[in-house]
Design a protein around this nucleic acid. Structure first.
Length: 866
RNA sequence: GCGCGAUUAGCUCAGCGGUAGAGCGCUUGCUUCACACGCAAGAAGUCACAGGUUCGAACCCUGUAUCGCGCACCA
C-alpha cells in the first residue's frame, strides 16, 4: 500500500468508511442469528432538533457499546429513531408562522396547520440523523422509527384504549399545571421550580363583626385577591382561633362588597407569614383543597393566556397577571390597606418549554393512574434492572413511592389524538356518552380535540419499535444510555410500560451519563451561546478526536466541564497513533499474522506485551463496570506511554543495524498494533479502520476481527530499570544545559551482569558518542548512581564540578527525606507488630534501597573537587 | 426542610486504607532519520475544615463550610 501521510487527516477518510460500513451491512441486526443478542434503543432525539454535545456523549457511548459487542461476538441491534416532541415542534412551527405569515395556527385551522408541521418535519427531520452518521454511529438505519409512524401511532392509541378499559385512564376536573404561553396543561414533571426574588405583600382586612379590628394577611400574589373565597387560620393558633366563623371584607375588586368567612384549617402554618392565609381555590393547589374541605366557591378570574377576566373587576380585566400584581398593590395602597412590602424568596413553578411561571388552573383533563408501580419499584430494588451509577436507584424509588396520577392530555394539535369519541361536536369533553376506541364509531361522532403527552408515546419505545421476530431476539434490551434528567419522564415510565405491556422489564442495565457544562459549570444552552456546534468540532478535529477527547473526561455519571482543549487532545492522540503506525510501515512489510511468541524477544518486547495484557484487562474491567473514561485513559497510557515513548524508542536500536532481535521486535510491533486497533475501535472507529485497512491487517472490517484476549506474557522488570536510568541521564543533561542532540562519551560501571547485551539500546537512548563499560571509577569523571550501576561523564569540557556537587546535594536531600519518612514508620512498634508482614518487608526493602542510594550519592559528591 | 453529588498541582480531572498521579498550562533545552497535533527535563499539592476509627487515612465514620443538582403544598 501507499505510504501513510505525515499527519492523520480525518476529513479524507471518515465519509468513505462510513459509506463502506453501510454498504457491507455491518450495522444490520439479524434476528435469526445464533449469536448472543445485544441491543440498545436510542433515546429518540427531537425530530427537528440538531445535534448537541449532550447527544454526542450519549450516542458515542451507545456506539462504543454496540461496536464492542459486535467485536465480542454478539448480534447487535442498535435501533435508531426520532421523537415528534409535541410542544417543542409545534412551538417552532407556530413561531415561524407568526414571523413569516403573521398568522396563528387558528388562522390556518387544525388540518392545514398539521400539514405545515409535517412539511417542517420532512424538511428538518433528517438533520439530526445525518449528524449522528457523521459521528460514526453504527445504528441499524433500516429500522429507523418515528413516534408518529402509522403503526407506532396506532399502538399508542391502542394502549390508551387498553388502559381506559382497565380503568386506569379517567377524565377529571383537577388542578393542573397550566402554561399560559403554550396554552396547555402540563405534567408535574414539566414544571421546573425556580427560586424567585419577589415580595411578600402584607395587607389588612377588616373583621366585619368587629369594626375597626383588622387581620393582617401576607401574600405573594395580590392580583388574585379578587378570587379569594375565604380567609383561613389554624384552629390551634391562639391568636386567631376565636375569630373562626366571623367574616372579613374582601378589598378587591372595589365597588362590590364581598364578605369572606374566616375558616379554620390545619393546612395553615401559623409560623409562616402572619399565620393568616387568603384562600384562592381557583388559583392555588393547596387553596383548592382547602376549598373542597370547606365547600368554598371557585372564582376563576383568569383567562387561559394569563390575563385577567371580567370577574377581576373594573381596571383589571384584560390586564396581564404581572401587570395586575403591580396594580393590585397600588390599589391596596390607595385604600390604605397595604401594611408593608417585604423582599421574599419563594419557589415558583416554571413551564419547562416556555420558561414562564405556570398557573395552577382547574380544568378537565385525562389522567393516568400508573400501572405496575409496585413491580417497577421492585425491579430496580431487586436489581432485575441495574442503574449505573447506582445512586439513581434511590431517586427512582423515591419518585415511585410518591407517585401522582399523570395528566396525559395536552391542548395541542401536534401529537397523537386522544382516541375518544363524543356523539356530537358540542359534546366534546363530556365523558358521559363518550366511546373510547381507535376507529371512529361513525358519522356524527366527534373526536376529542386534545392530543397525548409526548412521553405517553415514548414510554413504549423499547418494544413498539420492534416487530415480532426482533422482539423475540432482542427484547428486553441490554442497556439504556440516557441522561438522569429524564429518569422520571422516560426511564421510570418505560419500566412500567414494559412490565404492563410485555410482562418484562424493557432493559437490563441503565447507564446515566453526566450533563455537559461549560467551563464555568453552566448548562449548555442556546440563549447563553455557550454550546459549541459538534459539527464544527468534527470538521476541525475529526469524529474520532471528539469521541475520544470527550469520553476521556467523562467519568461515570459525573457532570462534565467541557473544554475544547480536550478535543484537541483527542485529535492529537489519533495523530500519535497514526504516526506510530507510520513508523512501523517505514520498517518494511507488515505481517498480519505476526506472533511474537514464535520469536526470541528482547526484554523490552516482553515487557511491552505484558503491559498490553494488563491494558486488555483494564479495558475489559472498564466495560464490565461501564467506566468509559477509565478505558480511554488505559488506552491513552498504553499507546502513548508504553508503546510510543518507550517501546518504539528502544525498537529503533533493533532497526538501526540488522540485529538478531529485529524479527521479534517487528512481530511485537505488528501484533501490538493489531491489538491496539481492535481495543481502540469502539472509541475511534474511523482511524482504526483506516489503519487496519491501510496496514493490510485484514480484508474484512476491523469491526469483524474479534476482540483481543490476554496473551499471558510475563513482564520484565529490567525494562523499567533501563527507562528510569535513561531518565536520570537526561536529567543530568538538563542540569548542565547539554542539548539533547549532543552525543556524549558515557562510561558505565554496571551493577548487573546483563547490561552488556543492551549496549545498542543504551547507545540510542543515551544519545551516546560511545559507551564503555568499566570496573572502577575513571579519573576526572562525575558519577551518577542509577539502578543499573554508576554512570560516568567526563568533567573535562562537559561537567562543571561545582554545579554537579550542587545537583548531587539536592538529590541527597531528597533521598534523606525519603529515608527519614520510611524510618519513622519502621521505628513505630505498633506498625511493625500490626501491619501485614509483606507491607513491613516492603518498607524495609525500600529503606535499604534508599540507604544504598544515599551512599552512592555521598561518594559521588565527595569525590568531586571544589 | 429532606436527599444526592462535588471540594486533590494554575486549569480539567484520576486515585477511594500502605512511597500524592495524569493531561493541559508554565519554565528550560531539542527541526534526534513516526509525530512540533512532537521529544526531553523541571518547577508546582498541610488531598475544603474539625473531630473520630486504625499500626497507618486523600481514601472509612461523624460533624462543619462552600458550590451544584433533585425532591417537598409552605401562602
Amino acid at each position: 500500500m501507499s505510504e501513510l501521510s505525515k499527519a492523520y487527516e480525518p476529513q479524507l477518510v471518515e465519509d468513505k468508511w462510513y459509506a463502506w460500513w453501510i454498504d457491507q451491512g455491518l450495522f444490520e441486526a439479524d434476528p435469526t442469528s445464533s449469536k448472543p443478542a445485544f441491543s440498545i434503543v436510542i433515546p429518540p432525539p427531537n425530530v427537528t432538533g440538531v445535534l448537541t454535545l449532550g447527544h454526542v456523549l450519549n450516542t458515542t457511548l451507545q456506539d462504543i457499546l454496540a461496536r464492542h459487542a459486535r467485536q465480542t461476538g454478539h448480534e447487535v441491534l442498535w435501533l435508531p429513531g426520532t421523537d415528534h416532541a409535541g410542544i417543542a415542534t409545534q412551538t417552532v412551527v407556530e413561531r415561524r408562522l407568526r414571523k413569516e405569515e403573521k398568522k396563528t395556527r387558528h388562522d390556518l385551522g387544525r388540518e392545514e396547520f398539521l400539514k405545515r408541521v409535517w412539511e417542517w418535519k420532512e424538511k428538518h427531520g433528517g438533520i439530526i440523523i445525518n449528524q449522528l452518521k457523521k459521528l460514526g454511529c453504527s445504528c441499524d438505519w433500516g429500522r429507523e422509527r418515528f413516534t408518529m409512524d402509522e403503526a407506532y401511532a396506532r399502538r399508542v392509541q391502542e394502549v390508551f384504549v387498553d388502559l381506559h378499559k382497565k380503568g386506569l385512564i379517567y377524565r377529571g376536573k383537577r388542578m393542573v399545571n397550566w402554561c399560559p404561553v403554550s396554552l396547555t396543561a402540563l405534567s408535574d414533571e414539566e414544571v421546573i421550580p425556580k427560586t424567585q426574588k419577589s415580595f411578600f405583600y402584607h395587607y389588612k382586612v377588616e373583621i366585619v363583626e368587629k369594626p375597626g379590628t383588622f387581620l393582617e394577611i401576607a401574600t405573594t400574589r395580590p392580583e388574585t385577591i379578587m378570587a379569594d373565597a375565604a380567609v383561613a387560620v389554624n384552629p390551634a393558633d391562639p391568636r386567631y382561633a376565636a375569630l373562626i366563623g366571623l367574616h372579613v371584607r374582601r378589598p378587591l375588586p372595589t365597588g362590590v362588597e364581598v364578605l369572606l368567612p374566616i375558616i379554620g384549617d390545619d393546612a395553615v402554618d401559623f409560623e409562616f407569614g402572619t399565620g393568616v392565609l387568603k384562600v384562592t381555590p381557583a388559583h392555588d393547589k393547596t387553596d383548592y383543597e382547602i376549598g373542597l374541605r370547606h365547600n368554598l366557591p371557585v372564582i376563576d378570574i383568569m383567562n387561559p393566556d394569563g390575563t385577567l377576566n371580567d370577574l377581576a373587576g373594573e381596571g383589571f380585566s384584560g390586564l396581564d397577571r404581572f401587570e395586575a400584581r403591580t396594580k393590585a398593590v397600588d390599589k391596596l395602597q390607595e385604600l390604605d390597606l397595604l401594611v408593608k412590602e417585604e423582599p421574599h424568596e419563594n419557589n415558583v413553578g416554571f413551564s419547562e418549554r416556555a420558561d414562564v411561571p405556570i398557573e395552577p388552573r382547574l380544568s378537565e383533563q385525562w389522567f393516568l393512574k400508573y400501572p405496575k408501580t409496585i413491580e417497577a419499584r421492585d425491579a430496580v430494588r431487586n436489581h432485575l434492572i441495574r442503574f449505573f451509577p447506582d445512586r439513581w436507584e434511590k431517586v427512582y424509588d423515591h419518585w415511585l413511592e410518591n407517585i401522582q396520577d399523570w395528566c396525559i392530555s395536552r391542548q395541542l394539535w401536534w401529537g397523537h389524538r386522544i382516541p375518544v369519541w363524543y356523539p356530537a361536536e358540542n359534546a366534546i369533553g363530556d365523558a358521559s356518552n363518550a366511546k373510547c376506541q381507535v376507529e371512529s364509531p361513525g358519522d356524527g361522532w366527534a373526536q376529542d380535540s386534545d392530543v397525548l403527552d409526548t412521553w405517553f408515546s415514548s414510554w413504549l419505545w423499547a418494544h413498539e419499535t420492534m416487530d415480532a421476530p426482533t422482539l423475540a431476539k432482542f427484547y428486553p434490551t441490554s442497556v439504556l444510555v440516557t441522561g438522569p434528567d429524564i429518569i422520571f419522564f422516560w426511564v421510570a415510565r418505560m419500566i412500567m410500560a414494559g412490565l404492563e405491556f410485555t410482562g418484562e422489564v424493557p432493559f437490563k442495565n441503565v447507564y446515566f451519563t453526566g450533563i455537559i457544562r461549560d467551563k464555568q459549570g453552566r448548562k449548555m444552552s442556546k440563549s447563553l451561546g455557550n454550546s459549541p456546534d459538534p459539527l464544527d468540532l468534527i470538521a476541525k478535529f475529526g469524529a474520532d478526536g471528539i469521541r475520544f477527547g470527550l469520553l476521556r473526561i467523562a467519568p461515570q455519571g459525573q457532570d462534565i466541564k467541557f473544554d475544547e482543549q480536550q478535543i484537541v487532545e483527542g485529535r492529537n492522540f489519533c495523530n500519535k497513533l497514526w504516526n506510530a503506525c507510520r513508523f512501523r510501515q517505514i520498517q518494511g512489510p507488515i505481517d498480519p499474522n505476526a506472533d511474537p511468541a514464535k520469536h526470541e524477544l528482547s526484554l523490552f518486547a516482553r515487557d511491552l506485551l505484558a503491559r498490553l495484557d494488563a491494558t486488555i484487562q483494564r479495558v475489559n474491567e472498564g466495560y464490565d463496570a461501564y467506566r468509559f473514561s477509565d478505558i480511554a485513559q488505559a488506552l491513552y497510557d498504553f499507546v502513548w506511554g508504553d508503546f510510543c515513548d518507550r517501546f518504539i524508542e528502544v525498537a529503533k536500536a533493533d532497526f538501526a543495524t540488522d540485529t538478531p532481535r529485529r524479527a521479534g521486535t517487528l512481530a511485537t510491533l505488528d501484533f501490538t498494533i493489531k491489538q491496539i486497533l481492535r481495543l481502540l475501535h469502539p472509541y475511534a472507529p474511523f482511524i482504526t479502520e483506516e489503519l487496519w485497512s491501510g496496514l493490510g491487517l485484514g480484508a474484512q472490517s476491523l469491526m469483524q476481527s474479534g476482540w483481543p484476549t490476554e496473551g499471558g506474557f510475563a513482564s520484565d522488570p529490567r525494562a523499567a530499570l533501563i527507562y528510569e536510568t535513561v531518565s536520570k541521564t537526561r536529567n543530568l543533561r538538563a542540569t548542565y544545559g547539554i542539548p539533547g542532540n549532543k552525543r556524549l562519551p558515557w562510561q558505565i560501571n554496571p551493577s548487573t551482569d546483563w547490561l552488556a547485551g543492551e549496549h545498542a539500546v543504551l547507545s540510542i537512548l543515551l544519545h551516546a558518542e560511545s559507551i564503555t563499560f568499566c570496573e572502577s571509577a575513571p579519573q576526572g569523571h562525575a558519577a551518577c548512581p542509577t539502578d543499573i550501576g554508576l554512570i560516568y561523564l567526563p568533567l573535562e569540557g562537559i561537567i562543571d564540578a561545582a554545579t554537579e556537587k550542587k545537583r548531587l546535594h539536592g538529590e541527597i536531600l531528597k533521598v534523606e527525606a525519603e529515608i527519614e519518612k520510611v524510618a519513622r514508620k519502621l521505628s513505630s512498634e505498633s506498625f511493625v507488630q500490626n501491619a501485614p508482614a509483606d507491607v513491613v518487608a516492603d518498607h524495609r526493602q525500600r529503606q535499604q534501597d534508599w540507604i544504598n542510594r544515599l551512599g552512592e550519592l555521598q561518594q559521588a559528591h565527595d569525590g568531586l573537587e571544589g
